[in-house]
Write a protein that binds this DNA or RNA. Structure first.
Lengths: 194, 194
DNA sequence: ATTATCTATAGATCTATAGATAATGC
DNA sequence: ATTATCTATAGATCTATAGATAATGC
């Protein structure tokens, strides 16, 4: 009855995370997750007795934890030059499946319990917003940037990078990381002639 | 048999557009659209014989046409100062339901026919990308900006503005348009001290 | 006559559960 | 004995269609 760690359970979580990240909560069916994990859909209830919503919340929290760690590591490794830090953060974000916060807010969240919405909202903030805000604050303390609305800038930056998932690399003629670096340069230096 | 213009049909299109814009193609049911339009769901087939997918494509194309016109008008009215133009464009975008291109690409598009995907992709590009690119090119010709990857900048700008829909105005303590203006200032002037 | 609407229903799914069966661990 | 899996099924929905009925336009 108690969900235990097992190889099959881990396969279920990985499959679920890939599908939920790509499509969100509603459109993904337990059958698709089961098929991807090599299990009959009804066997999912053995590993995650709480059903679809509990599974979604569990894998999203895993994903947030990974984002928080990955982003923080990317920012730390390339410190203390903000430009290099933001390049590394963008590269790391673009190595992951898209994290579409607008879809989460408008489509996924309304289907979940209030308690789950609360937890996921906090998780998203801690994972994506906090690490970048800290790096911006440190850069300001060093005199690298002349701005102090860190929440605004980190939200805008992350949103801008995530929106690159809607751009085809083939159409743009360059990779998403290189597009992200170009946008970070604009953010740092401005569009106006210096 | 032939779909005719009528008051009821217009109600259906308006209801469908609101719901599809908010949730995307899959999660919206014909029953929800019917209820919002004050019709039994089966009556939708009288007004849109092609069914759900045709209805989605029709209302998305309407939405693209409105975006193209609204954005172009906002940019034209406040010309020729780029900052004022981008403020107006952001204000106009934020007056509309969110246009989540990542969700469209990853969730909605895979459920549609290839021909419909083609039409909608072009429509999105013409509606959101082209007007901003033209304004940027004109600003560069005037010497206002020192940058020439207009596609990159307009994509990043629009993505950044749309991502504000994931931010609660209550949490941020300011309105989305004012957040957008702050981000446009950063884009124009840069984060580094001048 | 034509247009607009509804009721009823077919046929596909979906989530979730009950209960049988097989594999594994003492 | 416990753990893991499957089959079968209940009960909700969904899209789409057929066909009856009401409203409207000549």
């Amino acid at each position: 009855m108690k969900p235990v760690k097992s190889e099959a359970r881990e396969r279920v979580l990985v499959a679920a995370e890939q599908l939920f990240a790509e499509k969100g909560f509603g459109p993904v069916t337990l059958r698709q997750i089961g098929a991807k994990a090599g299990l009959n859909h009804s066997s999912l209830y053995h590993h995650v007795p709480g059903g679809k919503e509990d599974l979604y919340v569990e894998v999203m929290e895993r994903s947030f934890a990974r984002h928080r760690a990955g982003l923080s590591a990317a920012l730390a490794e390339s410190a203390p030059q903000l430009r290099a830090q933001l390049y590394a953060a963008a590269d790391w974000l673009l190595s992951q499946p898209p994290m579409d916060l607008v879809r989460m807010e408008y489509v996924d969240m309304p289907e979940l319990s209030q308690a789950h919405v609360q937890r996921l909202s906090e998780g998203a903030y801690e994972a994506l917003q906090v690490p970048v805000e800290l790096a911006l604050a440190a850069a300001q303390a060093r005199g690298e940037i002349a701005h102090d609305d860190f929440a605004l800038i980190s939200g805008g930056l992350v949103g801008m990078i995530q929106s690159l998932y809607a751009v085809s690399e083939a159409v743009a003629g360059k990779s998403r990381p290189s597009m992200a670096h170009g946008l970070i340069d604009v953010l740092l230096d401005g569009l106006r002639p210096r």
